[in-house]
Write a protein that binds this DNA or RNA. Structure first.
Length: 289
DNA sequence: TAAACGTGGCT
DNA sequence: TAGCCAAGTTT
């Protein structure tokens, strides 16, 4: 009798999206760049940015040789620009400490800036075929439904999530990595948060959540996500000015984007503290070199 | 552990 | 329309 992994893999073979970072020959660097870009940013928006990034900086050494400002500009409107800064820091670390090759070892990956539990496992598995469960929000939801009968993954509990997924993986490392990709794909395009397409699901016949009649989520649903008027929005506006300027800009250019001086100063101070903005001259601001 | 951290598209 | 969601990490 086929396992959940077998069913997922069979489905993946026929329905996987043709994403460029999954093509044969993509390096660890290509995979790492894709995973960082995909942290909280949808595939559709990552696609063009990833292509441009890899064409411009095909290796960690290439990016390490460029100013951080170039990375932040190339990041464009992907969001969370600290990721661009950290990816640049990754390139520097990989070039200096790992001979220019993105490492395959989990703990070594974890030590890189901006690389957490998910990203380290994704790179080790997808770029190097290591047998590590890769658990993102899609996999958590898919496993929670299929095995646990729950409506969603609930609060992230890394240990339990990894164990639950590990239990579904086959023994052979390369196959296990492909199963993780299949679980992610299922969660992303079939077993979605809203409007799951159960008739299209390869494990519909053995899904605990479907068997239970697709019960609604039970846990607390609060999730304050307001953006308008937050410091995050002001940071975004300030950084957009610097991104679109070739060089340093006078203070007045930044003052123009937000009327409340208290909030504007707070946002600018936090950007300076993060290293996303520098002040090469008094009352003059720029992206970091 | 909860909160901070961008941006855009979809319902 | 307003809210929800999207391959998370850091502090």
């Amino acid at each position: 009798m086929p396992t959940v992994a077998d069913e997922a893999l069979h489905w993946f073979d026929r329905h996987a999206r043709d994403l460029p970072w999954r093509a044969p020959g993509v390096t660890g660097w290509g995979v790492l760049v894709s995973e960082v870009m995909l942290q909280q940013t949808p595939v559709r928006r990552v696609l063009p940015a990833w292509r441009e990034w890899l064409a411009r900086w095909p290796t960690p050494a290439a990016l390490a040789a460029a100013p951080v400002a170039d990375a932040i500009r190339a990041w464009g409107r992907l969001g969370y620009p600290r990721r661009a800064m950290r990816l640049h820091a990754c390139a520097v670390a990989v070039t200096r400490e790992h001979g220019g090759v993105v490492p395959a070892d989990l703990d070594t990956l974890l030590a890189l800036p901006g690389v957490g539990t998910y990203t380290a496992r994704a790179v080790a598995a997808f770029a190097y075929g290591r047998r590590h469960p890769v658990v993102d929000t899609n996999v958590r939801r898919f496993v929670a439904r299929c095995v646990g009968g729950a409506a969603d993954g609930g609060p992230a509990t890394t240990r339990a999530d990894l164990a639950a997924t590990e239990a579904l993986l086959p023994a052979e490392p390369a196959r296990a990595a492909r199963v993780s990709a299949a679980f992610m794909e299922l969660g992303a395009v079939v077993c979605t948060a809203r409007g799951p397409d159960c008739p299209a699901c390869p494990v519909r016949g053995r899904c605990a959540w479907a068997a239970a009649g697709r019960p609604l989520p039970t846990g607390p649903t609060r999730r304050p996500q307001a953006y308008a008027g937050t410091d995050r929005q002001v940071r975004g506006l300030l950084l957009a000015v610097l991104r679109e300027s070739a060089g340093p800009v006078p203070r007045g250019r930044l003052d123009a984007v937000w009327s409340d001086p208290v909030q504007r100063d707070r946002a600018l101070a936090s950007l300076l503290a993060d290293g996303l903005v520098t002040t090469p001259l008094p009352d003059t601001y720029a992206l970091p070199q």
